[in-house]
Every structure is written in C-alpha cells, then in structure tokens.
C-alpha cells in the first residue's frame, strides 16, 4: 500500500514536471512568435523608411554599397529638382481634385442608395442590389476598354470629368451604407413619419446623422480609391499638366537611367504623404470601413 502511494506521488510529480516543461516550451514558442511579428512589422515599414530617407540621399550615396542605412550627407536637392523641374504641384492638385471629387460623389450617391436598399422595400430590390455587388466583385478590366473609348468619344481625355464622373456610382459605398443603416431601428423612422416628416426629411434629419461613422469610412475609402486608381488615370491622361501625382511620379521610373534615385524617392514620398496623413488622422474609420464592409450582406 505504501509502495503504491510513493510511486503514485512520483508519477504525479513527473507529470507535473512535464506539464511545467511543456508550459515553458509553449511560452518560449509564443515569445518567438511575438519576435517574428515584431520583425515582420518592421520589415513591412522598411520600404517606406527607405523611400523617405532615400529622398534625402545624393545619387552617390544612393548607389553606394554597402547601402547607407541613414543618409550621411542629407540633401534637399532631390526635392528641389522634383518641385522645380516638373509640374509636381499641379499633379498634387489634380490628385486632390480627382480623389475629393470621387469621394464627394461617392458619398452622395451611396448614402441615398444605401438608405433605399437598407430601409425600404420595393420590387426588384434584390436584383438591383445583387447586380451592384456582382460588378463590385468582378474584375473591371473588361469594362476598361469600352469606358476608355467612351471617354474618347465624349472628348473627356485630360479632363477632371474622366477622372471623377465614371466613379459616381460606388458599389462598395452603397454596400457599406446599407449594412450600417439596417442596424437603425425602424421605430425611429416611423416616429418621424408620424410627426409629418417627408421622405427626404426622414433620410436627412433622422437616418443620416446616425450614419456618420459609415459615411466617414466611405468618404475615406473613396478618397483612397480615387487617389490610387492608377491604371485608369494612366490611360485617360496624357497632357503633362493633367497627370495625377502617382501617374506623373511613376513616369520617373522610365527615366531611371538618367534620373537620380533620390528624385524618384522624393516623388514617391510626396505621393505617399497625403494618404499617410489621412490614415493617421482617421485610423478608426479605416478599421470600421473594412470590418463593416466584410460582414455578410
């Protein structure tokens, strides 16, 4: 009997030891994983760091090996050449106009339509909504060419119309607003109607104020989309003064042999800064927009 308890205690202690060791191993693996995540995060930021510091490097340092992890002879020459030698500020303005236009139109049309899809019942509703969703998911390269020909026929090349109007309907925005508005209780709408509010009054005074977070997210996404919509802006603009910033700056790549790397990096940095500012200011809206938009419809 005594033997039994001794061996039992021994076995228990062994088991405990094993548990402690496996817990320690798990903890070790866990911290290793955390380390990997930290290194990964830094690697993810690395190109941006490289771009910004690169914009302050003279060509001699930019092509030095081993590379300079920090510019030893910082210079503003690249920035001067970027801003003086090219219509860079005009490109910046163009990008702002295009992105703001896309965002403004997107907000107007999407809130109106999202309200109807989220809060009203009407014949053909599902069909009309699924049509929007379907085109949102499918690659748009097939419509790129006909749209391009349409712009040509309208003589819209090198105009802000071409950069903005084709995006007046923003299916993702409609989807986002619809998802959000569905959560607003119908009682609120009914109460306003009983109080004599018009159809538009209900939308404007009751529903819209409650939808602010979604509208914010929508505006930011539409702006980012309008800012980064490279392929379209590339094909519908040609005149130097009508290029957008990403398009204008990207043309520097073709001249890599003759243009200093630093100038290219300064251009890339300039194209990046506005989006960075918006992202840092409205980080929560980004998260909101992504998560609301992904919930099943």
């Amino acid at each position: 009997m005594a033997d039994f308890t001794v061996s039992q205690a021994k076995a228990e202690r062994l088991q405990l030891q094993k548990a402690v060791w496996s817990a320690r191993l798990t903890r070790l693996l866990w911290w290793l994983a955390v380390l990997v995540v930290i290194v990964g995060s830094l690697l993810s930021l690395m190109p941006i760091y490289w771009m910004i510091t690169g914009s302050f490097k003279v060509q001699h340092d930019a092509i030095a090996y081993p590379p300079e992890l920090f510019p030893t002879h910082p210079t503003l020459k690249n920035w001067e050449r970027l801003l003086a030698g090219m219509p860079t500020l005009r490109w910046l303005l163009n990008s702002f106009i295009a992105a703001s236009g896309v965002a403004l139109l997107g907000v107007i049309t999407s809130t109106l339509a999202g309200y109807a899809f989220g809060k009203k019942r009407f014949p053909g509703q599902n069909l009309l909504f699924w049509l929007l969703l379907l085109t949102m998911m499918l690659p748009k390269q097939i419509s790129l060419i006909p749209l391009f020909i349409m712009m040509r026929d309208l003589k819209w090349f090198d105009t802000y119309f071409a950069l903005i109007i084709p995006y007046a309907a923003y299916p993702f925005g409609i989807f986002l607003v619809k998802q959000f508005m569905q959560g607003i209780p119908n009682d609120l709408l009914d109460a306003a109607k009983i109080d004599g509010a018009s159809e538009f009054g209900v939308f404007w005074h009751v529903v819209l104020p409650l939808t602010k977070p979604a509208v914010g997210a929508l505006a930011i996404f539409a702006f980012m989309f309008g800012w980064n919509d490279y392929i379209w802006q590339l094909v519908v603009t040609n005149k130097q003064t009508m290029l957008t910033l990403p398009v204008g700056v990207s043309k520097l790549v073709a001249g890599w042999a003759t243009i200093d790397i630093g100038v290219g990096m300064a251009g890339a940095t300039l194209a990046f800064i506005p989006m960075l500012v918006i992202f840092l200011l409205f980080q929560d809206y980004f998260v909101k927009g992504i998560t609301v938009g992904a919930v099943k419809g």
Binding site: V37, G40, S41, L42, S44, L45, P47, I48, W50, M51, G54, A62, M224, W227, N228, Y230, P246, V247, V249, S250, L252, V253, W256, I261, G264, M265, G267, A268, T269, A271, F272, M275, L276, I278, F279, Q283, F286, V287
Partner: peptide
C-alpha cells in the same frame, strides 16, 4: 502591428513599386 501592415495598403502600388525597384 495593424498600422505597420496597413501602411503599404495606404501608400499604394506605384509608390511601393518605385521603392522596391531600388531595393
């Protein structure tokens, strides 16, 4: 971590492509 990995999304393809050519 979220910000680090979302930063390349924000900066857009053109900007990153230009840096990566150099890298």
């Amino acid at each position: 971590v979220r910000m680090s990995f979302y930063m390349p999304v924000v900066s857009g393809g053109v900007v990153l492509a230009m840096v990566w050519i150099w890298i």
